[in-house]
Amino acid sequence: MTQDTSGIVAHYERHALAWDCDRRAAAWTDKAPIERFLACLRPGATVLDLGCGGGVPVAAHIAAQGFVVTGVDSSPTMITLCRTRMPDHEWIVADMRSFTSDRRFDGVLAWDSFFHLGHDDQRRMFPIFAACTASGGILMFNAGPAHGEAIGSYRGDPLYHASLDPSEYEALLSENGFELIAHSIGDPAKGERSFWIARRSPI
């Protein structure tokens, strides 16, 4: 299966308010991995949230724990929600695939967002992760348990997901200066998410 992923940006802007409402109404089943990520950071650390959505529950929880959040999302509506809810933090309308910053962050998170990218775009994200992560900083992203593509559905619209093989993610992390800390595949206690946590090597 191959799928044009260019419609993802338009999809999330079109459904921004509905998605935000549904996310806030649902039980937060994936809190455990977020807590695991935050436990790796020093108090008051800076966190880059790539694909932050409307900021609830993830970015809001990170901010409530005293971390300094910079959120990035391609949806202007989502970013407006974040700015309204958490005006003391920074919110940027941008596509993660082309995001650049002159800063390096203590933590970089791509949660429930990275897996909407096609295989080649996912591969190209790892230099971006490296460029954004401070020496000794922490990266966490989630994807699928095995190489493949899948088309889900949200509000009647198709929704693309993809994953590389776990061994390729581990190789990409190593090639881009990260040391793997933790890898979990589909643990029900962690919201069924498959995720990777890695530390940026000293630079």
Rank of each mutant, 00 (worst) to 15 (best):
M1G: 14
M1T: 09
T2H: 07
T2Y: 03
D4P: 10
S6W: 03
G7F: 08
G7V: 01
I8N: 05
H11K: 11
E13S: 05
R14L: 04
C21F: 15
D22E: 13
R23E: 12
A25F: 10
A27H: 13
W28M: 08
D30V: 06
D30Q: 06
K31Y: 05
E35K: 14
F37V: 08
L38D: 02
L38V: 11
L38Q: 01
A39Q: 12
L41V: 09
G44K: 15
G44P: 06
V47F: 07
L50P: 07
G53C: 07
G53L: 01
G54K: 01
V56G: 04
P57N: 15
P57M: 15
P57D: 14
P57C: 15
V58N: 14
A59I: 05
H61C: 06
A63N: 04
F67Y: 08
F67M: 11
V68D: 06
V68Q: 08
V72W: 01
V72P: 00
S74D: 00
M78G: 08
I79M: 01
T80L: 04
L81T: 01
R83V: 00
T84L: 13
T84D: 13
P87H: 12
D88Q: 15
H89M: 11
W91S: 00
W91C: 00
A94Y: 00
A94C: 09
T100S: 13
D102F: 06
D102N: 11
D106S: 14
D106N: 13
D106R: 12
A110I: 03
W111Y: 15
W111N: 14
D112K: 03
S113K: 09
H119W: 08
H119V: 03
D121F: 00
D121N: 11
Q122L: 06
R123I: 04
A130V: 02
A130Y: 11
A131F: 06
C132M: 14
C132G: 02
G136Q: 10
G137F: 02
I138S: 05
L139Q: 02
M140E: 02
N142G: 04
A143E: 05
G144E: 07
H147N: 11
G148H: 11
E149S: 10
A150P: 00
A150F: 08
A150L: 12
G152M: 07
G152F: 13
G152C: 06
S153K: 10
Y154V: 07
Y154L: 07
Y154T: 05
P158I: 08
L159N: 09
S163F: 02
Y169R: 14
L173W: 03
S174T: 11
S174D: 09
S174R: 10
N176I: 04
E179L: 11
E179R: 09
H183P: 06
S184W: 01
S184K: 06
I185P: 10
A189Q: 12
A189F: 03
K190H: 11
G191F: 06
R193E: 12
R193T: 07
R193D: 08
I197T: 09
I197M: 13
A198V: 04
R200D: 05
P202A: 11
